[in-house]
């Protein structure tokens, strides 16, 4: 099992060994893909899958942090079906040094995913920083980063728009509502959930992609990680297409006439309280 004492005794101020940045990435359907439901709770996966857009920002941030310090290892980790290896390759092409693929035969919920990530990470090394996107665009769960942090018993912040590294801590800004911000300092190791505003992810060049082919990807079956089965579960029992019934009424006439008609219908049949 994970030895917490050992984990914290690590002298984070004296950085003699490389800094380990783990980036958790998810293989998700392209947002433009047509989703076809094939079984009561399955989709046809014969569509384009990509590195989750928010995770791109996490990879970019890790690669930038690596550029700032000579001795940094960026390790991309994914949990998912065999095809998820392509998402690791995308992360490697963006500049991650190596990858770990926890191979599953199904798409686990975030409770199991976090346990698998935790097990895979501590089996691999001691994390200084763990980065991941603030959400995955398939399930929009917003929670894996928190569950991972709780499993490792380390601090976490999400919706992060800037990261500044200090000796043994990081200072991040988290988005609040109506454009507000909270500045948070966390001792390392810690987990960061990245927002779109953090950076602009690089597009890998062809040489990057070719170079990435030589990078190591270690595969481990989820069954070999000896994860304790959780008591809690979130299971998709049914899926249906989301169809919104729209009125699809075109309003014609002069500018003034059509605006008058729009207001009339909004206040009338649509019952909108326009003050």
């Amino acid at each position: 099992m994970f030895d917490a004492a050992l984990f914290y005794l690590r002298p984070h101020v004296i950085i003699t060994d490389p800094m380990n940045i783990y980036v958790c990435v998810k293989h998700v359907p392209d947002s433009a893909a047509t989703i076809r439901i094939v079984e009561p709770n399955q989709i046809d996966e014969n569509i384009t899958f990509l590195l989750n857009p928010y995770d791109e920002n996490a990879v970019e941030a890790a690669v930038q942090l690596k550029a700032d310090s000579d001795d940094t290892d960026v390790i991309a980790v994914t949990v998912g079906k065999p095809a998820a290896i392509d998402t690791l390759k995308s992360a490697l092409a963006m500049g991650a040094d190596r990858g770990i693929h926890v191979v599953t035969g199904y798409w686990p919920d975030s409770i199991v995913t976090a346990r698998a990530l935790q097990a895979a990470i501590i089996k691999d090394g001691l994390p200084d920083l763990i980065l991941t996107g603030k959400a995955a665009i398939d399930s929009d769960g917003y929670q894996t980063q928190f569950r991972l942090a709780a499993a490792l018993d380390i601090p976490v912040a999400t919706h992060v728009g800037s990261i500044a590294r200090n000796d043994n801590s990081v200072t991040v800004t988290c988005g609040l509502e109506a454009g507000g911000e909270q500045v948070i300092r966390m001792r390392m190791p810690c987990v960061i959930g990245t927002a779109k505003t953090l950076n602009t992810p690089r597009y890998p060049t062809l040489p990057d992609i070719i170079k990435a082919r030589k990078k190591e990807i270690r595969e481990v079956s989820i069954d070999h990680l000896a994860i304790e089965p959780p008591d809690s579960r979130m299971e998709i029992i049914a899926l249906k297409s989301a169809v919104q019934k729209r009125r699809k009424q075109m309003i014609a006439g002069s500018i003034e006439e059509s605006v008058t008609e729009l207001i009339r219908r909004l206040k009338g049949e649509a019952r909108i309280p326009l003050s």
């Binding site: 439901i37 398939d138 929009d140 809690s232 579960r233 299971e235 029992i237 989301a242």
Partner: peptide
């Protein structure tokens, strides 16, 4: 019930747990 896959589907999710 919650939307998934860019709001293209609605999933019925069953939750199990003490809380």
């Amino acid at each position: 019930e919650k939307p998934q896959f860019s709001e293209k589907t609605i999933a019925t999710i069953r939750v199990t747990g003490h809380h």
